[in-house]
Design a protein around this nucleic acid. Structure first.
Lengths: 213, 213
DNA sequence: TAAAGTCAGAATGTTATCAATGAGGACGAA
DNA sequence: TTCGTCCTCATTGATAACATTCTGACTTTA
């Protein structure tokens, strides 16, 4: 899909940030990254600016780019935003959802369950991708373009810290149950139920990376 | 404040879009803008990419950038988002607001009233700036960094179409009254009242650019 | 010793130039 | 006329080299 150098750099850099290869606060040198990826500085700069706009990088003039460090307070606020926005998305989706949405959700839920019971070492990143796709379908079903694009940015940020590899067996199973319950609520076209399930789902995810306090 | 060429181009271009100098759908050529502003294409490219990330420009490969055309549906959805997010910001602000916030809000409300009663030809852009500052203080008082930054992007977009020059005398006066009422609600630390006033304020603004349908 | 000034080095900001791509029109055949 | 092909040109994509600015370390001086 991405055929320009800039988009390749973008994707690579974003992967490294989301996967934790690049840690919070790390300094990114344009030249270094350019030679590393075998292109000139211009595409690298473009990728960096784009990631800055998404909030994954912070850049200060003449100094360079740094991987954004999120405070615990930031993370807490991001979850509050997800609560508000994904709650609304679920609510809206319940009234508008189409059959093919429900079918996709079922398939994704099933694949996630299969993946979570497996033992492949890369299963967590697979679950992450499936989970993102699942939430994406719910958002799409809400039919609100603006809500969808806002959510995309916010969720991405909350994914920097949250990995399914941190989930306990119990937490993972609860998450899967939420997916099932959400599908049921949506298929019954019950907005309040759908919103409530989503609230449970997000609130429970909130406590994975940060057990107490 | 902005000392790099790229940020100057960014600011200039953004002003032109928000002020309507550049209309929806207008084509922007890198070369053209570069010679116009007396710099090379690179800073222009950077500014364009940044504005694309903010949603003000749409970028199609090998063709160039176009000023985003918002459909009526988009505008409606943006107001829904503002309703949700600014409502929450007002609610939170009510419990946390400090005395100096209230003082600033009073000053701004007063200046807006004075400006709206004046006859200076540039009074509408003045009111716009004051109004943005007013809402900014409310957001700031909410103390939620993430909410604030999300709102900044959304409001900016909703400002492309909405100008106080379109307000009738009655609408303008109602808007001023909302500001006063919001200050009172906030000073009484009544979250529900503050939220309700903000809802009224945004819903009434919704019907300025688009009288019916 | 501490404070201020200076300078070298490194990184980003900017430019000019070349390469590649796709849009749109001219042309011809069915 | 309509469709398809090819060609041309405008515009973006990418590179390398130059300019500017910041940082931090070294020197000087009181």
């Amino acid at each position: 899909m991405p055929r320009t150098s800039a988009s390749i750099v973008y994707k690579t850099l974003k992967d490294r940030i989301l996967s934790g290869t690049l840690a919070a606060g790390d300094h990114i040198r344009e030249e270094e990254l350019a030679t590393d990826l075998g292109c000139s500085r211009t595409p690298v700069r473009e990728a960096i600016r784009q990631l800055e706009a998404e909030g994954l990088l912070e850049l200060s003039p003449h100094k360079g780019a740094y991987v954004t460090s999120w405070t615990d307070e930031d993370i807490a606020q991001i979850y509050q935003m997800r609560l508000l926005l994904e709650g609304r998305a679920s609510k809206l989706a319940a009234s508008k959802i189409k059959e093919f949405h429900l079918e996709k959700l079922c398939v994704l839920a099933e694949e996630m369950e299969r993946a979570s019971k497996g033992t492949r070492p890369d299963r967590f990143s697979l679950i992450t991708d499936l989970n993102n796709a699942f939430h994406g379908i719910v958002h799409e079903a809400s039919g609100e373009t603006m809500l969808i694009s806002t959510l995309k940015g916010i969720i991405q940020v909350s994914m920097v810290r949250n990995t399914f590899s941190l989930y306990s067996k119990e937490q993972l199973s609860r998450s899967m149950n939420h997916h099932r319950e959400l599908i049921t609520a949506l298929s019954h076209q019950d907005p309040e139920w759908a919103e409530a399930v989503m609230h449970c789902h997000i609130r429970s995810a909130r406590w994975v990376t940060k057990p107490r306090s």
